[in-house]
Design a protein around this nucleic acid. Sequence first.
DNA 1: TGAATATATGAACAACCGTTCATATATTCA
DNA 2: TGAATATATGAACGGTTGTTCATATATTCA
Lengths: 118, 118
Amino acid sequence: MVDKIECCECCEHHTELIERVRKSGVSKERLYDLAELFKVFGDTTRIRILFALFKNEMCVCDIAELLSMTHSAISHQLRVLKQAKLVKCRKDGKTVFYSLDDSHIETIIGQGLNHVSE
Amino acid sequence: MVDKIECCECCEHHTELIERVRKSGVSKERLYDLAELFKVFGDTTRIRILFALFKNEMCVCDIAELLSMTHSAISHQLRVLKQAKLVKCRKDGKTVFYSLDDSHIETIIGQGLNHVSE
DNA sequence: TGAATATATGAACAACCGTTCATATATTCA
DNA sequence: TGAATATATGAACGGTTGTTCATATATTCA
């Protein structure tokens, strides 16, 4: 794959196509970040948490009850979601309320739901 | 977590919230499918392949050259993308051309790019 | 037909990831 | 202050996943 000559015939034919993508302006690094973002969406627990927060903010305890999972598991996932800037939190006494951080999130999940609903 | 009484105080307070999410009409199963979909987007190689196909259909060999990866690795990932109905293929002689299967895909990736571009 | 080419696929290995368990921190209230 | 409660976190374990390697299939063309 070092050189076009050593590659298959096929590659010689579509060099222009390849160059076009290379010059598209979206860097490999940005696509890497994008994959990281989708990786966060790509877990059942986290998607269910995000979906729960569509309507209202919720505390760790509520989410744990809703999903029938331990507080610890939920807390770990909320940490991942927070690092990805998908949720934010607000502390009220002992309780921490989580909510969606961004309106993009509903759009992304909405489009995904369209796709899986076909 | 069996019973509201045995749960924390907090849960008692937000039972209505929990019920509202439970009755939202989107099932656990559909959210599971949604996570599966995003899981497919959540890999650098696959995202780069999908992005490459934004502009044009491409053969396995072109994609391998573009990403500097082996034909085998690309072929394996194209299989995953095809199973998820994100790409479709067309055979022309020895060559197999892949393209995006659905217009939702560009929207989802576009929204994702918005999020990571902040 | 047989060599060359393009793609597909099964097995295996390493790396990654989500949960659990134990424990720590933070806050309230008696 | 000390008990009780809500959340956070580190370590560890088991399961998943992406790549590589070897090999198989399919197609063209001499």
